[in-house]
Write a protein that binds this DNA or RNA. Structure first.
Lengths: 346, 346
DNA sequence: CTGTTAGCGCCTTCAC
DNA sequence: GTGAAGGCGCTAACAG
């Protein structure tokens, strides 16, 4: 492996000169430049990341702290991970994955060993062990998900409350009076997942404000069994708002299997559906803006890393830092090509 | 940030002694051990990864080279990424994500800057630019996906050929004579995706061996439109084998919407479905063994990294190395709780 | 505009 | 059983 010394020797200059040329950290004469670049080329030289980091205390790596979740969630988390990786690269960072265990030791280890300049925390709950970790270590971080303490750290999130409210309001506006809000699972609620709590709150507000009956039901992980049960019974709903990116297709399948036409017999609005799902079916929906969230949270994390490099950014200043870096609550957008169908008049 | 020197000072020993204690690279008296550990604790010391790497030329990081794919595949790729991250951690590695661009510069950069000890290449095609890169750089690597040149590098994959064959054979055994094989898209085939080509080959072999009529149709990304078209017509199939992890629910919905009962009117077998999908419906299927593939490919990559550390492992030995490290073709397992339904007698 | 020098933090000989 | 010293590859401070 060629080192900067080899390059310097070959180009007939000092090692530091090579460094200056490559980092453009100082004006260098065109001729020297040319010679250096040629030597680099000929030797196939590439700077060693570890040496650079040791010297400069920057890694150009961001850590992504995934929550520990079950298999099905991993598809969504992974989707984010890849988009965040893209976003990071565009800002000049690589992305290191850490899957959180009980006490976020992965994140702690990465932060303390100086493997990354900042962290992105995915899918944070209202309270989240990872938040404690980054604050304790004064490690720059940005979150996807809106924590209970909104001012502790920069974050981005879809406005789930507004999204659920919007879905209910639009269904009510289309004439529906009996609506079921299919919320995340009980488990997610008792884990105090931010999106779950806020979504339910939004649905409740929608009920209150429209006067429609909104029954909040938790998904139980088995749409094929649960959906028919919901739709039968005396007060059969005419509309369903579903807050679960993955199971929407299964719900449609279940409805179809139960002999219901969508949307004639049952209007369905999806909240937080994944973009790019290859179903041709254009369902009314509020999409989870994965790409936007990924780009924003990455920007915030990178900004936090930069800010900490400025002289005078002492640890106690981090709370202030968070506020100055800012938050981003993304307003929901309802996509409904053909409008929302009303209830079948009967 | 505390350094090894600080710890040494506090414990009243030499820096090297601290190193010995922490790495257990030499017997140290219990008393000294205790004092060192206490100092470590009190100062919150953690060795700096960059310094350790600079010294030892090992990073304890694996790189994951994702293919550039469109959004829908990202859910699957991401699922793998997270499982691989878990597997890596279990072997003592962290995982660095790189999303491949045209010429896999990401991977190249990571390899050359010494950011990782080995790479895992996800979703490799029959021919794949990333393979050239790792071979050219003599960078240890393992693949998910079975490349055309099977002996160049270690790999793991589901045996797609056998999977498709098995699906067709079982459908035929259940009495079906008119079967549609819904294969990956044309685009995937012309990109020479390994799973697509091999799956189709397996379906063809199944047809040949069972005498059933198997029509191979490429998914066009819009099940709601495509499926009814497939199921109508003069020679309506009684069974469908679907090689596409994500669209299965949409296909079931489309079938239901077309007035077909599954499985009475149409038997459906899914090939390469994602595990843990929260659809309650127990569909006959051959699951993509994500966890197994992730664990195996990680093991292979780590082994390749270790092997290259052995003295005498010169670059020309890498091909041999690959063979000694080995491959793993995972046999398909058909999951069909209630057996596979036969065609409705008519 | 370019060269020299010192050290980032760690590990590993080598000497005691 | 312990300590001192050197160097991994790079960059920033200090000459010239």
């Amino acid at each position: 492996m060629a080192t900067i010394k080899d390059v310097a020797e070959r180009a007939g200059v000092a090692p530091s000169t090579v460094s200056y040329v490559l980092n453009e950290s100082r004006p260098i004469s065109p001729e020297t430049c040319r010679r250096v670049r040629q030597a680099v080329e000929e030797l196939g030289y590439h700077p060693r990341a570890s040496a650079r980091t040791l010297r400069s205390t920057r890694t150009d790596v961001l850590a992504l702290a995934l929550p520990r979740t079950d298999g099905s969630q991993r598809a969504i988390d992974g989707r984010f991970a890849i988009d965040i990786s893209d976003a990071a690269r565009r800002l000049g960072y690589d992305l290191l994955l850490t899957t959180a265990q009980e006490k976020a030791e992965g994140l702690r280890r990465v932060a303390r060993s100086g493997l990354a300049d900042a962290a992105v925390l995915m899918a944070v709950d209202m309270e989240d062990a990872r938040i404690e970790v980054v604050r304790e270590l004064a490690f720059p971080a940005a979150l996807i998900g809106r924590p209970a303490d909104e001012h502790a750290l920069p974050w981005t999130d879809l406005d789930w409350e507004a999204a659920a409210f919007l879905a209910v309001r639009e269904l009510a506006a289309a004439g529906h009076r009996e609506i079921v809000y299919l919320a995340p699972t009980e488990r997610e609620v008792s884990a105090r997942r931010s999106y779950a709590l806020r979504g339910i709150a939004g649905a409740r507000r929608g009920a209150q404000q429209t006067g429609a009956t909104v029954r909040v039901v938790h998904a139980d992980g088995d749409p094929a069994r649960q959906v028919p049960a919901l739709l039968g019974g005396p007060a059969a709903p005419t509309a369903l708002a579903v807050q679960h990116g993955l199971v929407l297709p299964d719900i449609l399948t279940a409805a179809a299997a139960a002999g219901l036409q969508v949307p004639e017999d049952l209007a369905v609005v999806a909240i937080g559906s994944l973009p790019d799902h290859p179903s041709g079916r254009e369902q009314p929906r509020i999409e989870l803006p994965v790409e936007t969230l990924a780009a924003e949270v990455t920007r915030l994390a990178a900004a936090a890393a930069e800010a900490l490099r400025e002289p005078g950014a002492s640890p106690p200043a981090q709370r202030l830092l968070a506020d100055s870096v800012g938050h981003l609550l993304i307003p929901p957008v309802l996509l409904a090509e053909g409008g929302i169908a009303g209830p079948r008049s009967r």
